[in-house]
């Protein structure tokens, strides 16, 4: 009587086929099951007793949120980029490609784009490598290693604002770093970390790296667990040093994870805002010279008085295209890497 429940029908293509051993049903039988009356295709015991609207009810909030605050805003951004909408309301009119032509002639836009791309170019390689080295360092189970792992993770927990405040005081003209360097007679006169536009950008990158280290360290720790220990043992028997083992065993072993970290940090670098805001003040560096694309979008698109949501949307579309390009590039590289 209960056979149909204790031995549920296994459906190819679903994730839950593990419990029924035996060959998968042929294509003909699958087709027949889909067409003929009876339990719905893919039905198992649970599904047969479930009302059809129940899954929709349970997933409705997630669908709603994804549509209203994910898909719709994007489509709307594309639409808005052809108008001159104002952030605080009022009539918006269609202006065609005007926002885009304005964008191409806008030197501030290109400056922000350059800053964002530069950010990615510098942060990504370091963020792929440094956390990996750190993970290798904390991988071995030494006494007290749990404490070190947790301590390295703390910057991840602090908000960018708090971390920014702390760095601001470290890097100020009379801050800790300058004071120490002067005491050690390495420099004469303070390094203008917070007033020179290049130094602000570099300091912000340092801040991003510092805050991300712990996060990607944990990520790599999981990946390192899959690198066979025997390889390391065999290599060290053959007299390979730590550096050689790192490049020839560890790195190939976590290659996929490195690719993923590269993609994630690349996308993350294009989204940088708070670091610049905290270190370069709310103007984004002297004269806005350190503004990244999100910073620029906020400045031109959301300023209550001078803002133009239409133009801001056009820049948003540019940011999206840049992100998309980066993602596709990363995908292609990953594919080539696997082949």
């Amino acid at each position: 009587m209960t056979t149909q429940i204790t031995h549920p029908v296994s459906v190819p293509g679903t994730e839950r086929t593990g419990s029924v051993p035996g060959p998968a049903p042929s294509r003909v039988r699958r087709l027949a099951r889909a067409v003929l009356p009876g339990p719905a295709p893919g039905a198992n015991g649970a599904a047969m007793y479930r009302r059809w609207w129940l899954p929709w009810l349970w997933t409705a909030p997630a669908i709603g949120c994804a549509v209203v605050f994910g898909v719709f805003p994007f489509l709307n951004t594309v639409l808005l980029s052809f108008t001159d909408a104002k952030p605080l309301g009022g009539a918006a009119s269609f202006v065609g490609l005007e926002n885009y032509t304005r964008m191409l002639d806008d030197s501030d836009f290109w400056l922000a784009t350059r800053n964002s791309i530069l950010y990615a170019l510098i942060v990504v390689p370091l963020m792929v490598l440094l956390p990996l080295l750190l993970a290798v360092l904390v991988e071995k189970n030494l006494p007290g290693i749990g404490f070190f792992r947790s301590a390295f993770y703390t910057p991840v927990l602090a908000s960018s604002v708090v971390v920014g405040l702390s760095w601001q005081w470290l890097l100020a003209d009379d801050g800790l770093v300058n004071t120490w360097l002067e005491k050690a007679h390495l420099i004469r006169g303070a390094i203008p970390f917070l007033s020179d536009s290049w130094l602000i950008l570099l300091s912000a990158m340092g801040l991003t790296l510092w805050k991300g280290l712990g996060w990607y360290m944990v990520f790599y720790l999981a990946a390192l667990g899959n690198v066979p220990k025997e390889l390391h043992e065999a290599a060290s028997m053959d007299g390979a040093g730590a550096a050689r083992r790192f490049w020839h065993i560890t790195v190939p072993g976590v290659r996929q994870a490195m690719m993923l970290v590269g993609t994630l940090t690349g996308i993350g670098s294009l989204r940088v805002f708070t670091e610049i805001y905290m270190l370069g003040s709310s103007t984004g560096g002297p004269g806005g010279a350190d503004r990244t694309l999100p910073f620029y979008i906020r400045d031109v698109g959301l300023d209550p008085i001078t803002g133009n949501a239409g133009y801001g949307s056009a820049v948003s579309v540019a940011l999206f295209l840049l992100t998309l390009g980066l993602t596709l590039l990363a995908q292609r590289l990953t594919k080539e890497d696997e082949a």
Binding site: P73, S316, T323
Partner: peptide
């Protein structure tokens, strides 16, 4: 699909909503 769009690239439209 909803995960494809970075928050920063839709925030103008989100704010209008």
């Amino acid at each position: 699909a909803s995960m494809m769009f970075p928050f920063e690239s839709i925030m103008v439209s989100l704010f209008l909503s």
